[in-house]
Amino acid sequence: MVTDRGHRFGVDRAALLLDAFEGSDRLTLKQLVRRTGLPRSSAHRMLDRLVQLRWLHREDGYYELGTRLLELGSLALHQSRVHRAALPSLHELHRVTGLVVHLAVLDGSDVVYLDKLGRGLAAHLPSRIGWRQPAVRTSVGKAMLADLPPDELDRILAVERSRRTRAVPLDVRRVQTELARVRDRGVAIDHGETIRGFGCVGTPVGATGSVIAAVSVCGPIPEVQADYLLAGPLRSAAHGIWRRYQDRGPGIAPGPRPSGSVTA
């Protein structure tokens, strides 16, 4: 008989194997064993089962994420209340600025990107749906961090500080000064911190103390240096997202993605 503890153990191992693919498209059994620390026989048995369930795909000795995960991820994305509320404003923001537009939410000390819109310029940016980055390095992350209560912000900065090496320590005082500037101006700036040569300007979505997400525009640094010109369109987009989020709530009907956008 399989106990609840046995089920949890199996789920934990499956999650460990799936998490190992972060940052990698394809991995061998040897690589997965090394990344997870699981015994080779246990990993092989679990991988076979994940392939059967279509959570993973196996070809030529390599494993990669399977179609079932893509289906579930797409379902979760289109059921996202924030994402559905944001789509019209994201497209309008891209139309007005001609820059790449991102929508992101805060997840612990990281940001996770819910959408990316753009055309030719988007291909030069590695960002994509599901992309995860340290919040302190991104304009969307700074926009959301600036809204946090001091104790919660301190916890996140402690996590980020523990990630850094001694060679590149986190300057907590600089981060706090920058976040204070974000509170005053309503926009956050990333001048090549995340992607070399590209800058982003972001603003929070939601009322003070109730920020639910952040939206940004990104492009070559010379095109985003005049951030005061982008603040108006950004605030307008954030206001529209927040209004639809509040007005329609969980009843927002999922619809087809507008044509002409590029998602990466």
Rank of each mutant, 00 (worst) to 15 (best):
R166L: 15
Q52M: 06
D48H: 15
R68D: 02
R244N: 03
G66C: 07
S42L: 15
D190Q: 04
K30T: 14
I241D: 00
E223S: 15
V11P: 12
L17G: 01
L234H: 03
G240W: 13
L117M: 12
C200D: 02
A188G: 08
R84G: 04
A167M: 12
H102K: 13
S42M: 12
H91L: 12
G219M: 05
R95W: 01
H239G: 06
Y245P: 01
A207Q: 09
S41Q: 10
L53Y: 11
G219S: 03
R119S: 12
P220K: 07
A237S: 01
R196G: 11
Y62E: 14
D247S: 08
A167G: 06
D110N: 13
T3D: 09
H239Y: 14
G186R: 00
S24M: 07
R248C: 10
R54D: 07
L117R: 13
E71I: 07
V100E: 09
L125R: 02
V136L: 12
F21M: 07
R26L: 11
L77Y: 01
D107K: 15
R13L: 09
Q133R: 12
Q79D: 15
A15F: 10
L72N: 08
R183D: 10
Q225P: 05
A226R: 12
H7T: 14
E223H: 14
R243T: 09
V140D: 03
G130F: 00
G186N: 02
R54V: 11
D190A: 02
Q52K: 15
R35D: 01
S42C: 10
G206I: 04
A158W: 08
G255D: 13
L17Y: 01
A213T: 06
P254M: 11
A238I: 04
L145P: 06
G141N: 04
R13K: 10
G199Y: 00
A43I: 07
V140H: 02
D147R: 12
D115F: 08
G251Q: 14
Q79G: 14
L121N: 04
V105Y: 06
R196H: 14
D25T: 11
L114F: 08
T138K: 04
R128S: 12
P169Q: 08
G209T: 04
A264G: 08
A43D: 01
I221W: 01
I252S: 13
S41D: 13
F9S: 08
G186F: 00
D184T: 12
R8F: 13
K142A: 06
R128D: 10
S261C: 09
L70K: 12
D247V: 02
A226D: 08
